[in-house]
Computed example of a mutant assay.
Amino acid sequence: MKIIKKIAVKKIVTDQSKGQLREEYQFKIFKLEQECEQLKFEQKKLEQRSANKKADIEAKFKKEMANRKDHIKWYKYKLEQLEILPTGSEINDGEVEAVIDIEEGMNWDDLTEQTAIIVKDGMITKIT
């Protein structure tokens, strides 16, 4: 019988991976700021078309912009934490699913034991 097991992927922080993460976070912040500007533009355009629904339009757009601003704050926080993070430490990088063969007589505790894939600069260095 086959089962699916979730396996943690951990990344070892190097100067190269720090640089990649920094660029990724800065790009996401940039995209979110662009979306906020686009939402402001769309809001003004809609408010001009239907002046009687101005409060409803404003509320909807305010909520969307607040959501994006929260994401911007989160990525800025992650950037700050990235600078503090020492080289060589491990960070979680998500999960993958693996198909595992099981059969009668196998030790269940061994199967349910936490497994991890360790990645350094894009290369798998260890599977535990």
Results as ranks from 00 to 15, higher is better:
76 K>N: 05
116 A>C: 10
15 D>S: 14
3 I>D: 07
45 K>G: 05
117 I>A: 04
83 E>M: 13
74 W>F: 11
109 D>K: 13
45 K>R: 13
4 I>S: 13
63 K>N: 13
30 F>N: 06
46 L>R: 14
119 V>L: 03
69 K>Q: 14
42 E>Q: 08
81 Q>K: 15
98 A>F: 02
48 Q>P: 10
28 K>C: 06
127 I>Q: 07
119 V>A: 01
39 L>P: 04
14 T>I: 08
1 M>C: 05
94 G>A: 06
5 K>S: 04
46 L>G: 06
107 N>G: 07
106 M>N: 05
75 Y>M: 11
67 N>D: 13
52 N>L: 10
82 L>V: 03
5 K>L: 11
35 E>W: 00
98 A>C: 08
1 M>Y: 03
25 Y>C: 11
88 G>S: 08
128 T>D: 12
122 G>S: 01
52 N>S: 04
41 F>V: 12
83 E>N: 10
82 L>R: 02
77 Y>C: 11
24 E>H: 09
118 I>F: 02
70 D>Y: 08
54 K>Y: 00
57 I>W: 04
52 N>H: 07
111 L>I: 15
91 I>S: 09
10 K>F: 12
67 N>E: 12
8 A>H: 07
106 M>D: 04
120 K>H: 08
92 N>T: 11
63 K>Q: 15
122 G>M: 01
87 T>G: 03
22 R>W: 01
25 Y>I: 05
59 A>W: 01
107 N>A: 09
98 A>V: 06
26 Q>N: 08
50 S>C: 15
116 A>W: 00
77 Y>L: 06
74 W>N: 11
79 L>M: 13
100 I>F: 09
123 M>P: 04
49 R>G: 15
62 K>V: 09
82 L>T: 04
21 L>D: 14
65 M>A: 07
3 I>L: 09
36 C>S: 12
104 E>A: 11
61 F>W: 11
46 L>S: 10
80 E>T: 13
80 E>S: 14
56 D>H: 03
55 A>K: 10
2 K>Y: 05
103 E>S: 02
124 I>D: 05
49 R>T: 13
36 C>V: 14
108 W>N: 14
86 P>S: 11
33 E>A: 07
36 C>N: 12
57 I>N: 01
83 E>G: 07
11 K>V: 05
102 I>E: 09
121 D>Y: 04
56 D>I: 12
34 Q>V: 06
18 K>Q: 04
58 E>I: 14
117 I>F: 00
117 I>C: 07
58 E>K: 14
98 A>W: 03
100 I>Y: 08
52 N>Q: 06
22 R>S: 00
118 I>P: 01
68 R>T: 11
95 E>K: 06
124 I>W: 02
95 E>W: 08
71 H>N: 09
27 F>G: 03
127 I>T: 09
27 F>H: 08
103 E>Q: 11
109 D>P: 05
66 A>V: 05
37 E>C: 12
55 A>M: 11
54 K>R: 03
7 I>N: 01
84 I>G: 00
22 R>N: 00
1 M>I: 10
107 N>V: 13
60 K>D: 12
124 I>F: 06
97 E>F: 05
16 Q>W: 02
120 K>Q: 15
84 I>F: 06
70 D>C: 10
125 T>G: 12
54 K>W: 00
60 K>M: 15
